[in-house]
Simulated scan of single mutants.
Amino acid sequence: MLWPYKTPGIPDDLFERLPGIPLSKREVRLLLISALRLKQDSVVWDIGAGTGTIPIEIGLLCPDSQVIAVERDQDVVNLIRRNCDRFEVQNVKIFEGQAPDCLDQLKPLPDRVCLEGGRPIKDILTEVWQRLKPEGRLVATASNLENLYLISEGLAALQARNIEVVQGAVNRLETKGIYQTLAAVDPIFILSGEKF
């Protein structure tokens, strides 16, 4: 087994990647998964699943959960499938579609949602929120101030409760020539809210 541990935090280099396809860095995944507050049998939608790192981590951590990874591009869908196979994850369903148009086709309805990008972000947020079960949690990422504002404004308009915004500062040790230096991982905002 490629990742035989019961903890999240799979090293980035264990995932197959494609040029230009985003990968949530290990430290960011840890924050995202923590913000989701998963239950053993959660139904999780990951909208904009990219390389598939979040669905795979959740699938391994909560084998009784159902995870639906949504991506719009067939090559990326195939990448997620290959990564699921690499980690022998059985509880991730991969759906090819463009959010928010494809959301009516996703079943079952989620009690947890991870929203990792997409345009128009505010429309996707609103449509996902309508399908989120009561007492569900939504976690969204923003890598720029515009999306931070749109997601914050959207959560407020939807009357989300217990809204949290975290911007973690992560640095990794890298060797450059004869020196070891700290290099910043791209900063990202993680926003979360609950539906009641």
Rank of each mutant, 00 (worst) to 15 (best):
S65G: 08
V70S: 06
S65C: 10
E96H: 07
N83I: 11
F95V: 15
L36N: 02
V70F: 12
D64Q: 14
D64L: 04
L60P: 06
V70A: 11
G50F: 09
L61H: 04
P55W: 07
D85R: 15
V43P: 06
V67H: 01
L38H: 05
F95D: 01
K93Q: 15
G52N: 04
A35Y: 04
I68L: 14
C84M: 14
V70D: 04
R72M: 08
G59V: 07
C62H: 13
L36E: 02
V67W: 01
L61P: 03
C84G: 09
E88I: 06
D46Q: 02
R37A: 05
D46A: 07
I54L: 10
G97M: 12
I56V: 13
R37M: 07
I56S: 06
Q98L: 12
R81C: 02
L38K: 01
E57W: 08
I58R: 00
G52T: 01
T53V: 14
V67S: 07
R72F: 01
C84T: 14
D41P: 00
Q90N: 14
K93H: 12
N91Q: 11
I94P: 01
P63C: 12
D64S: 14
L60F: 09
I56L: 05
S34L: 05
V89W: 11
D73Y: 13
W45D: 10
I54P: 03
E71S: 07
Q40P: 00
N83Q: 09
P55F: 01
Q40M: 00
G52C: 06
R82S: 13
S34M: 01
P63A: 10
F87D: 11
D41C: 02
P55V: 10
P63Q: 11
A69M: 04
D73Q: 11
I80W: 07
G50A: 13
V92D: 05
L60H: 02
F95E: 13
G48V: 03
E88Q: 13
I47D: 02
C84K: 09
Q74C: 06
F87H: 03
L61K: 09
